[in-house]
Each structure stands twice: as C-alpha cells, then as structure tokens.
C-alpha cells in the first residue's frame, strides 16, 4: 500500500460525462495491476470527506503514469472532472488482488458495460501483449454511453457492442453477446466488470458453461485500505469456518475474485 501525491497531467472528456485522467504517480505505476483501483482525495477533506475509488484503465511503468477513466456522476467524480492539469491529488494504491491470467493459449472474453469497462481495457491490453486472443463485449443503455472505438480497440482483437435501445450494435444485453461467443467459439476464460445484476448473470452463464470467470468488484467504502470493513461482499463459503469469514473486504481481499467465491444472491448455489 502506498499513498502518493499524484500530479494530474490531463483530464479530458472522452464520451458523454466520461473523463480520462492521466496522473503522474511513479510509485503506483510500477506496482498497479489490472483489476485494481486507486483511491483519490478530491478536495480538502471535509466536503467531500472521503476519497473516490477509481479503477485503473492503464499504466505506463517507465513513464510513471497511471490512467483512470471515470463517469462524472456524483459530487466527487464531478469535482474531479473540474480539476485542471498540475493539481496534486493524494492517491492511495490500496488494492491487493488483481486479475489473474489464464493458462497459456486460452481464449479470453472480457465482459463489461458502460463505465465499468476500464479495468478490462488495461487487462485486455496486457493480455494481448502476452499473445492471448481476446474479445471485448460491452453493453450500455444507449450509444452515447459507449466509449469510442479508439479507446476500446487496443484491448481486444474483436470488440462487440450492445445497447438496450438498439442505437448501436446488438439490440439487447451484453449477456446475449456472451452466450453467442460461448455457443460459436466454445471454451474461454471470462473476465467481468459491471453492476451486480450483470455480473451475477455472467457468473451464472459461466457456471453453466463450465468456463472460469473472474470479476473485479466495486462496493461502497470509506477507506479502501481494510480498516473500515465497509466494503463487504458476501462469500459463497465463509473463510476460516466462522461467521467472521462470511464477508470479504473488496478493497484488500479483492477487488478481483473468482466468480464462484461470491454469493451473488440468496438463491445462489454454493
């Protein structure tokens, strides 16, 4: 864990309310892994009080740069979107478990939606550098909630989009795209980031198809370093056999988990 004064290099709008911030943070850049997040202090610490956790969408170790792609939706992300270059932002690199690569030669399918796609972009790029074949499936409500092809393309050999209203790509859910992928091309390793319901659906499809699935989770948190015990996620099987192990902390026990570890709902098979 490291707390670093990151310097904002650029912060530009890349889609409707979506911003890409590049930060000089050399200590974090050398150790951050795909699927992990950074916790950024925006403002002086009373309002907003807590930091904002944001997934890292890219890192350049040599240049000491990290990138975060975020949607300006709440007070903190809106405030961050207004911060100009050269600002110093206390940035904590807290998370422990990044995404883990599949065995060599395995085909990779990345499943994300809207603004939940950033960790998959970083992961896809890394896997392609290691010669994995990757497909990226992204769902969004409408066409303008999709990131541009320029941002998505480097992460995958093939990009497939879906929109709820049919304004771009497949008219329907991103899980339809995953079902197609599995039916047409067979076994693969799936990595998923998105809202709870979408991840649950993807986890269920993967369980049924008997393909491995890792998820990068987000949960409301106060600290991001494991001390508030706020970002709890219920496990399918309690760790250590006591009630204490019923929940894991997303920030330090994750944020990446094997989808089978998570209790997605009360009826979830264990």
């Amino acid at each position: 864990m490291i707390d670093e004064q990151a310097r904002l290099l650029s912060n530009r709008e890349v889609a409707a309310d979506f911003y890409l911030a590049r930060l000089n943070a050399p200590h974090i850049a050398v150790r951050i892994e795909p699927g992990q997040f950074v916790n950024i202090q925006v403002g002086a610490g009373v309002a907003p009080l807590l930091r904002v956790p944001l997934s890292v969408s890219g890192a350049d170790r040599e240049a000491g740069i990290i990138e975060v792609l975020y949607e300006a939706v709440g007070p903190k992300t809106r405030a961050l979107s207004q911060v100009g270059p050269d600002a110093a932002l206390p940035t904590l690199s807290p998370s422990r478990q990044g995404l883990a690569a599949p065995s060599e030669g395995t085909r990779v399918v990345l499943v994300g939606c809207g603004i939940c796609v950033p960790p998959l972009l970083y992961w896809g790029l890394k896997l392609r550098q290691r010669s994995y074949q990757t497909a990226l499936l992204v769902g969004a409500r409408t066409a303008d909630k999709h990131l541009s092809n320029e941002l998505l393309a480097p992460a995958a050999d093939a990009v497939h989009l879906a929109t709820d209203d049919g304004s771009l790509g497949h008219a329907g859910l991103v899980t339809d795209l995953l079902q197609n992928e599995l039916a047409e091309k067979g076994p693969c390793a799936v990595y998923c980031c998105g809202p709870h319901g979408m991840m649950q659906a993807v986890a269920a499809i993967c369980l049924e198809a008997q393909v491995p699935c890792q998820v990068s989770l987000e949960e409301y948190m106060a600290c991001g370093i494991g001390i508030c015990v706020g970002c709890a996620v219920e496990l399918a099987t309690a760790k250590g056999d006591t009630d204490y192990g019923r929940y894991a902390r997303v920030c330090v026990d994750g944020p990446a988990f094997d989808a089978r570890q998570i209790k997605w709902g009360n009826a979830w098979p264990t």
Binding site: Y220, C231, A232, Y244
Partner: peptide, 30 residues
C-alpha cells in the same frame, strides 16, 4: 466471531458518513 451487517455498509453524508458494519470481528479466541 461476528460476520456483521449485510452491505451496503457505508454512505457519505454532508461532512460525515454513516456506517452500518455490525461489529464484524473475529471473536475473543481468534
């Protein structure tokens, strides 16, 4: 040992925050 409360456990409020952790702890013996 106590598992604590179901999520969501944290929400930020003006100049403060609410928590509902539910005394998650390993218990005396552990």
């Amino acid at each position: 040992p106590r598992g604590g409360n179901p999520p969501q456990r944290i929400v930020e409020t003006p100049a403060g925050m609410l928590n509902s952790i539910g005394l998650q702890n390993p218990g005396l013996e552990a």
